[in-house]
């Protein structure tokens, strides 16, 4: 069983870590574009912020999966 717990932990880590990498890659380019737009037109701050944080959900999904996996380990 001990080996299984280790694998579960690795799985949980991968779920959240890979999700975070994906979100980071996506947010990098969106964020750059949003800041560009924001400097041109200040009113776009709100919309830019929203666009930038949309991929964040990926990490949240990863986290949900991670927590569910950890429940398996108990």
């Amino acid at each position: 069983m001990a080996g299984d717990v280790g694998l579960i932990a690795i799985g949980a880590g991968l779920a959240i870590g890979l999700g975070a990498i994906g979100a980071g890659l996506a947010e990098a380019s969106i964020g750059a574009a949003a800041v560009g737009a924001f400097t041109e037109k200040e009113e776009l701050f709100g919309k830019g912020l929203i666009m930038t944080v949309i991929p964040e959900t990926l990490v949240i999904f990863g986290m949900v999966i991670a927590i569910m996996l950890m429940q398996l380990a108990h």
Partner: peptide, 12 residues
């Protein structure tokens, strides 16, 4: 589904 699960960030 994704919008509802997105609220998990409150906990995270």
């Amino acid at each position: 589904l994704s919008h509802t699960l997105s609220y998990a960030r409150l906990m995270g």
